[in-house]
Amino acid sequence: NKASVVANQLIPINTALTLIMMKAEVVTPMGIPAEEIPKLVGMQVNRAVPLGTTLMPDMVKNYE
């Protein structure tokens, strides 16, 4: 099973992601793959992301 990106803390709306906000975890359903973490740094979330939430592509602005 591949790990996904999971919020390590509450991430407020429009916050630019940093490494300490994210962790890799095997979850179902899968979200953004953990190997994308370096690419996510500096990208903004378009909603508040609660602690423990799996990051999905539609939660990150301009994620492709």
Rank of each mutant, 00 (worst) to 15 (best):
M21H: 04
R47E: 06
K39T: 03
I37K: 05
M22C: 08
E35H: 06
A24Y: 12
P12C: 15
V26Q: 10
M30W: 11
I20S: 15
M56C: 13
M30Q: 06
K2E: 15
A24P: 05
E64P: 12
K2V: 15
T53A: 11
V5C: 09
A16V: 09
L17A: 01
N14I: 08
E64Q: 15
K61R: 10
I11W: 01
Q9F: 14
T28P: 02
L40M: 07
I11V: 14
V5Q: 01
V41C: 10
L10M: 07
M30R: 02
V49M: 05
E25L: 09
P33I: 10
I11T: 01
G31W: 02
R47A: 06
Q9K: 10
L10K: 11
G31F: 02
Q44E: 09
V26S: 15
V41H: 08
I13K: 12
T18G: 02
A16R: 14
T15H: 07
P29Q: 13
T15P: 01
V27S: 10
E25I: 07
N62D: 04
P57L: 07
V5L: 03
I32G: 00
M22E: 00
K61I: 06
T15G: 08
P57K: 12
I37L: 09
G31V: 03
I13T: 09
K23T: 05
A48C: 13
T28N: 12
N14T: 06
T28H: 07
V49D: 01
P38F: 13
M59G: 07
V6A: 03
L10E: 10
L10W: 11
I32F: 03
N8F: 15
T15L: 06
N14C: 14
V26A: 13
P57T: 11
A34S: 13
N1I: 12
M21T: 06
V49P: 01
M56N: 10
A48S: 06
I37W: 02
E25G: 09
K39C: 12
N62E: 10
K23D: 03
T18R: 10
V27K: 04
M56R: 06
P38W: 12
A24V: 07
P33H: 06
P29T: 13
L17F: 07
V49S: 02
P33K: 10
E25Q: 09
V27G: 05
L51M: 11
V60E: 00
N8R: 13
I32E: 00
V26R: 02
P33S: 11
G31A: 06
P29C: 13
Q44F: 14
V5S: 05
K39A: 07
V45Q: 00
N8G: 08
D58V: 07
P29Y: 14
Y63V: 03
M43S: 07
S4R: 02
V45T: 08
G31N: 01
A24T: 11
M43G: 05
G31Q: 03
V5P: 02
A48I: 07
V60A: 01
N1F: 14
E25W: 14
K61E: 08
I37M: 11
L17D: 00
A7R: 01
E25H: 12
V45C: 08
K61P: 07
V6M: 14
K23W: 05
K39N: 06
E36M: 04
T53W: 15
A34C: 15
P38Q: 08
P33L: 10
M59R: 03
V6Y: 13
M22S: 01
N14M: 12
V60H: 00
T54G: 03
L51R: 11
Y63S: 05
T18V: 04
L17N: 00
T18A: 07
A7Y: 01
I37V: 04
G31P: 00
G52T: 04
Y63W: 12
P33E: 08
V6P: 01
V45D: 01
N62T: 08
T18N: 05
V60G: 01
E35S: 09
K39M: 04
G42C: 13
L10G: 12
M43P: 00
L40W: 02
I13V: 07
T28F: 07
I37T: 04
N1W: 14
V41L: 10
L55N: 00
Q9S: 09
P50S: 10
L40A: 02
K23Y: 04
M56Q: 05
L51Q: 07
P38V: 04
P12T: 13
M56K: 10
T54P: 08
M21R: 12
L17S: 00
V41Y: 15
A3Q: 05
K23V: 04
I32H: 01
V6W: 05
P38D: 05
A7W: 00
